[in-house]
Computed example of a mutant assay.
Amino acid sequence: MSKAQAVIIGVGDGLSAAVARELAPDYDLTLAARSAEKMQALAKETGARMVQLDATDEAAIADLFDALPAPPRVVVYNPSGRLRGPVAELDAAEVRTAVEITAIGAFLAGKHAARRMLEAEPTEGTRGTILFTGASAGVKGFARSAPFAMGKFAQRGLAESMARELHPQGIHVAWVNIDGMILNPGCSEAPDKPGSMLRPEAIAKTYRQLIEQDRSAWTNEITLRPWVETF
């Protein structure tokens, strides 16, 4: 029996890699990112196929989903556009690009993931899961970080609207608020605060739990934060 399809968009060596490793034993993986170089080692490790694309290019996103041998059961959207600076000094073109990566890219991925999932016959009432990697910036805007807040607020609204529309059609949609720093490769925790950063593998296990939730108790939004994070 062939494995179900899973797609991860926005692949790096931190959270995306952890999610790929978590899903690889049970899914036929497709990794997509702007940089092919960032995906090569992970694709070899997990047996995934690679697609190089710009997440804000609708034709490329549509082609990504159309090329799958079957409708996806899991889609994860990770990219974010970060741009910091005083609001009075921000360049409008750079702000537009940042928001397009975070919000428009999420919309395009959600649109074409849903389009393909709706082609599938439900299994126990479920067609698949779409997860958006959010941040605390989607709940509260921080100083000198307006573009990131704009994108994440929009992404959160997108996920909520999609959940209300698609849950009754058997597609689970959830927005994951990563409220804290992720312990990505190259990062380190303060010696006096072990466990103070979110471990990618721990986040990936939560993604797995969301994917496997019974539809009678679907989560549409969840916040993950380490014990040191205030809220």
Rank of each mutant, 00 (worst) to 15 (best):
K38T: 14
T129L: 00
E212W: 10
R82Q: 15
S161A: 12
P194V: 07
G47F: 08
P72M: 08
A120F: 10
S35I: 00
A32L: 07
T46S: 12
T219L: 13
A24V: 06
D91R: 11
E45Y: 10
G105A: 03
L29V: 12
Q40P: 04
L29A: 01
K111I: 10
A67K: 13
N177D: 05
Q155H: 10
P69K: 02
D192Q: 15
L31W: 04
I8S: 02
L158M: 09
V95S: 05
N78M: 14
A159Y: 02
A24S: 13
T126R: 14
I61T: 04
P185L: 04
A55V: 09
T223H: 06
R82I: 15
M39S: 07
W175R: 03
D214Q: 06
S188D: 14
A146S: 09
K205A: 14
L198R: 03
G128M: 04
V139Q: 00
L31I: 03
L42F: 08
A62W: 02
I182L: 09
G138V: 01
V7W: 04
P194N: 08
A149Q: 00
D13L: 10
A48N: 01
D192L: 13
V11D: 00
R215N: 01
V173T: 05
R208H: 06
K44T: 15
A62C: 09
F153Y: 07
A60G: 03
E160G: 05
L68F: 07
T97L: 13
L23S: 04
A6R: 00
S35A: 05
P122L: 12
G134E: 05
P25Y: 05
L42G: 08
F231T: 13
V87I: 15
T30G: 13
K111P: 12
I222A: 10
P168W: 04
T230D: 09
I203P: 06
L108Y: 12
A98F: 07
A154E: 11
V7S: 09
G85I: 11
A106Y: 01
D26K: 13
A4Y: 14
F142P: 01
I203R: 07
F231E: 09
A20S: 06
V75E: 07
K3M: 08
F231G: 11
A103C: 13
S188V: 14
A163F: 03
D91T: 09
A48R: 02
N220H: 15
I101A: 06
I178F: 04
N184V: 09
L210C: 08
E201K: 05
A159H: 02
A190R: 14
P69N: 12
L83S: 11
Q52C: 11
P72N: 08
W175M: 05
A103V: 04
